[in-house]
């Protein structure tokens, strides 16, 4: 009887070990799959041409990704510039100043904002922002900025709450105003965490697809200002995959687009997560 129990315990352990390993391996499988699939393109063109050429003419076999990279950078940049100050101030307010009642209103709102699907943001963008700013990079940036707000705020709230209150007390007892304490002690103590949160938010913004696709205009040309239309990478994949796959190298090109996203986001994520783990550890005394 007892030996059966122990056998079951071992067997279950084995199965669970396998599942755990499998979840790690998914990351690797994805990387390998995407590389293999984009190999035909990578073999036929130098990487520099793929990344920096602005000629996107699949019918003629020209695959320059620069317009899409530029589009992605624009919308992500605008989104961060808009969202970071708002979320920093909101998070500071929620942690340092807000009363319990205010929090009990704002946190559910953030929940809702975080839960709303990309496509809903897209509809909102088309109905409310496009009439003001047109199908442009700016519109994409605004919509994306609102989308990453809840992620940024909740990460920052977590980071700020981890700062021991004794530090704030020490600073206050020297006669610092609350903002002085925050600026010089809390923000300083948490700066690696803030950086990690921003990197994480950037990587979220980089991969957003549907909402951006709906409001950006999708023009495969290099944009020169934020009032022009653009064509971010995820939108390229979503718009074209599944069609025209008979075209030589077209599938490989779209897979390469996915690979770029995967690699950049993977790097960003690993760095920021490792930093966040460290921050967490440092505070958990």
């Amino acid at each position: 009887m007892k030996s059966l129990c122990i056998f079951k315990d071992r067997a279950a352990g084995g199965v669970m070990f396998f599942l755990t390993i499998a979840s790690i391996l998914v990351v690797g499988a994805m990387a390998v799959g995407l590389v293999v699939k984009s190999m035909p393109l990578l073999e036929s063109r130098p990487l520099s041409e793929l990344l920096f050429s602005s000629e996107w003419k699949p019918l003629r076999g020209e695959f320059g990704f620069f317009p899409f990279l530029a589009g992605t950078l624009w919308v992500t940049g605008i989104a961060i510039v808009l969202a970071l100050p708002v979320s920093l101030l909101t998070a500071i307010y929620l942690v340092e100043y807000a009363r319990r009642r205010v929090k009990s209103y704002v946190f559910p709102m953030l929940d809702i904002l975080a839960g709303l699907p990309s496509v809903i943001y897209g509809v909102w963008g088309v109905l409310l922002i496009v009439p003001l700013a047109g199908y442009t990079l700016l519109t994409g940036g605004i919509v994306l900025g609102v989308m990453i707000l809840p992620l940024l705020v909740s990460l920052l709230v977590e980071i700020f709450s981890a700062v021991p209150s004794s530090l704030r007390d020490a600073s206050a007892s020297l006669g610092a105003t609350q903002w002085q304490s925050i600026k010089k002690v809390v923000l300083r103590k948490t700066s690696p965490g803030i950086l990690a949160a921003v990197v994480l938010a950037i990587s979220r913004a980089l991969g957003e697809t549907i909402a951006v696709l709906m409001v950006c205009g999708n023009l495969p040309e290099v944009p020169h200002s934020m009032m022009e239309a653009g064509y971010p990478l995820p939108a390229l994949i979503a718009n074209n995959y599944g069609e025209m796959l008979s075209l030589p190298l077209y599938e490989a090109a779209l897979m390469f687009a996915a690979l770029i996203l995967f690699v950049v986001i993977l790097l960003f994520n690993v760095t920021s997560r490792v930093i966040l783990y460290r921050v967490e550890k440092k505070f958990a005394l």
Partner: peptide, 25 residues
């Protein structure tokens, strides 16, 4: 508060250098 200093139970250095800790106030 400036006129009332505080020394807490557990020492609580601010996240800065030794010099800056004293100069902070």
């Amino acid at each position: 508060r400036r006129r009332i200093g505080l020394v807490s139970q557990k020492p609580c250095p601010l996240p800065m250098s030794i010099f800056e800790n004293v100069a902070y106030g």
